[in-house]
Simulated assay, not measured.
Amino acid sequence: MTTTATLPATLDDLLKLAEETGRILAPLAADVDAQRDNGHEAYRILRESGLLGLLVPREAGGAGLGFADYSRVLAALGAHNGAAALGYNMHNVVIGALSESVGTQLPPSAETFRAWMFDEVVNGRKLFASATSEAGTGAKLRGIRTSYRRSEDGQHYVLNGEKSFVSLAGAADYYIVVARAEGTEGSSEVSHFVVAADDPGVSFGEVHNLSALYGTSTAAMKLDEVTVPRSRLYLGVEGMSLFKLVREPHWMAAGYTGAYLGIAEAVYRCTVDYVAASPKRADSPVMQRDLGRMSARLRAARALVHEAGAHVDTQRGSLEANAMVHAAKYIVGEVGPALAQDAVRICGSAAVSRAQPLERYIREVAFSAVMPAKPDECLEYVGKAALGVNLYNAQAFEW
């Protein structure tokens, strides 16, 4: 097995690597968005860049980034290819939560599991994805219907069910599948399992015909008597997934935020370039005020995303950190579409021309509201935190 090159040691160099990788990904976006390509080439490029190991601890061969710096790297990628950045985030939602468990005393089976996954990412260049959402319940764990049971020999788990929206379908090597024990419908105890793309009984439907972000390669997933060894139970513990989400919701609630911040940055950058290309426009006080308003909104969103990330890194699991990431997700979801409206008004036909990347960014930035946590959920969480509601109680929020 070939070992990947060591990732840069500093954030500046990692951002430079992300920028260089983003420039390579950028030309692919138009063909993928127009469904002339399936988008898998973008994920091959991300594998080769070494960035799959961004969150893996340094002692395990990764870059060891925390949540705040990860958001910066993700934004750098999103500014060039939004779909690839969102797909890449699905990998890191899985790896980030695992990396944060380092330093926590765990049973030997969990240590073995973690070492295996890190090795698969760093040395095997394997791409992971999350398989959570189901029809009617979305990503809310309490409503999950996919089930599992122990095999007769007690050494395996057998999974059955359907997932409605699985990103990286056909592109990832492994999928982290959320399921509940058979006969426990309505229970808050759900578990995660690592399912390989080539495990017998795993199949995918056609990639969804999305109006934007087609490059996330999102499709339905079916699990028909899929058998996995006990060693592929996430961290070797059953029934703890909802508890983990309630305590530390940042990956589920706000992992996407950096990508959408990057797309919003691209909307602003394209608008500035349009105005700057004409001396008449550039000298107009009206245009200057318009760009100033866009810049102020974007700066405020960026500052909140960075502050929320810093809270996660220093106070992970605190109510303040959890409220901050929900606030950041909400604000980015508001600012991005507002910038898009400004861009349409300022750039006119240039904003709707398929020949220009701005048209794609405008479509993409609107979809922040679709990704969990949704705007109303973010506001409800922040409001409950302000009122002192115990958000560590799994019954206090509709997970």
Rank of each mutant, 00 (worst) to 15 (best):
residue 161 G to C: 07
residue 306 H to P: 00
residue 272 V to R: 13
residue 329 K to F: 07
residue 355 A to L: 10
residue 221 M to S: 03
residue 340 A to M: 08
residue 252 M to W: 12
residue 157 Y to H: 01
residue 200 P to L: 05
residue 199 D to G: 00
residue 369 A to F: 00
residue 149 R to D: 03
residue 200 P to N: 11
residue 81 N to G: 03
residue 283 D to V: 04
residue 92 N to E: 14
residue 23 R to T: 08
residue 96 G to M: 09
residue 166 V to R: 04
residue 209 N to A: 13
residue 245 L to Q: 13
residue 303 A to Q: 11
residue 13 D to S: 07
residue 176 I to Y: 06
residue 15 L to W: 07
residue 300 A to I: 00
residue 398 E to R: 15
residue 29 A to T: 02
residue 258 G to R: 05
residue 50 G to C: 15
residue 29 A to M: 09
residue 4 T to R: 15
residue 371 M to A: 11
residue 177 V to W: 01
residue 385 A to D: 08
residue 198 D to A: 02
residue 47 R to N: 10
residue 302 R to W: 01
residue 72 R to V: 01
residue 160 N to T: 12
residue 211 S to P: 04
residue 345 R to A: 14
residue 399 W to S: 07
residue 337 P to I: 01
residue 294 M to K: 06
residue 125 R to T: 09
residue 261 L to P: 03
residue 145 R to G: 08
residue 364 E to V: 01
residue 390 N to Y: 12
residue 150 R to A: 02
residue 265 E to T: 05
residue 268 Y to D: 09
residue 276 A to H: 00
residue 126 K to C: 07
residue 311 H to Q: 15
residue 345 R to D: 14
residue 66 G to L: 03
residue 209 N to T: 13
residue 321 A to Y: 02
residue 301 A to H: 05
residue 293 R to L: 07
residue 54 L to F: 11
residue 75 A to N: 08
residue 384 K to C: 00
residue 378 C to P: 01
residue 353 S to N: 09
residue 327 A to T: 12
residue 146 T to D: 14
residue 234 Y to H: 14
residue 264 A to R: 04
residue 390 N to W: 12
residue 117 M to D: 12
residue 148 Y to W: 12
residue 349 S to A: 11
residue 291 L to A: 02
residue 192 H to T: 01
residue 40 H to V: 02
residue 363 R to Q: 07
residue 368 S to K: 04
residue 7 L to K: 05
residue 298 L to T: 00
residue 91 H to P: 13
